[in-house]
């Protein structure tokens, strides 16, 4: 469903993503782990078509993000880091705008918007200004926007970053409800997210993949659990790079 083929991106001399290759099937929830600056967001931006890769490709449900960008983009729902939204709009107007960009007709648009408002549980704030909503609600509006076209692939960049425990739980529950029917990539540096939401973990460091395993298998690699494994993967790569 999602296939990354030797994806590369550099900003000047700084290599952000290097030869990244993996594939993801329907029903899988991939925890995309790495330190800040490891290349997670750059990878997400390339998969979503926000950034062009220097070389390589991402194939989304059979469509290349390089040669069939718009067809590929219609296969994804993307929640960028920080869930940027138009603060002057209401969630209802914002979701209608997103539906318009997907080319839905009026009845399709209304059905889709009603569906995601129910899925994200934002009906009680649907007519309030987005700028007046709490961070948790704004994140849910962002998630609802990512679901408007009922995409087979979901890309969520730090979906729970900065949320309180109750808000985190609401987001996790939403992801769990979506998981069986979609391929989901969750970029995060919060390790507690992984066992709670993911069926698979991919760790990158300095733009390169350093681990690809199940959360359980990764956790069992060291006595200290996932945190120790994560630190050792980051350190070993840094040591190797020196």
């Amino acid at each position: 469903m999602l296939e990354l083929k030797n994806l590369n991106k550099a900003f000047g001399d700084n290599v952000a993503v290097s030869a990244l290759t993996f594939s993801l099937q329907k029903g899988e929830v991939l925890g995309f782990l790495g330190q800040n600056g490891a290349g997670k967001s750059t990878t997400m931006r390339m998969i979503s078509g926000v950034l062009e890769p220097d070389s390589g490709d991402a194939v989304l449900n059979g469509h290349s993000i390089v040669s069939e960008r718009r067809e590929a983009q219609s296969q994804i729902g993307y929640l960028p880091e920080g869930a940027p939204l138009y603060r002057d709009m209401t969630p209802l107007a914002f979701l209608r705008f997103i539906a318009d960009t997907h080319g839905l007709n009026r009845s399709g648009r209304n059905d889709a918007v009603d569906r995601v408002i129910a899925d994200a549980r934002i009906a009680d704030v649907a007519n309030q200004s987005i700028g007046s909503l709490s961070k948790g609600y704004r994140r849910r509006v962002g998630l609802a926007a990512a679901l408007v076209n009922d995409p087979p692939i979901l890309l969520l960049d730090e979906p729970t970053d900065g949320l309180d425990p109750i808000q985190k739980r609401a987001v996790r529950a939403l992801v769990a409800r979506m998981a069986p029917t979609k391929a989901i990539v969750i970029s995060t540096h919060t390790l507690e997210e992984v066992p709670a939401m993911c069926s698979r973990v991919l760790v990158i460091n300095n733009g390169m993949m350093v681990a690809d395993d199940t959360p359980q298998a990764l956790e069992n690699r060291k006595p200290g659990g996932l945190e120790e494994v994560f630190i050792s993967l980051a350190n070993s790569h840094e040591a190797g790079a020196k």
Binding site: R45, S48, G49, V50, R69, R70, E71, Q73, S74, I76, Y78, P80, G82, P84, L85, Y86, R87, I98, T101, H102, G103, A145
Partner: peptide, 14 residues
């Protein structure tokens, strides 16, 4: 400035 450009560029728009 608000970051919505990233959202906009991820949409299947012309």
């Amino acid at each position: 400035n608000s970051g919505t450009a990233e959202l906009l560029l991820s949409l299947p728009v012309n």
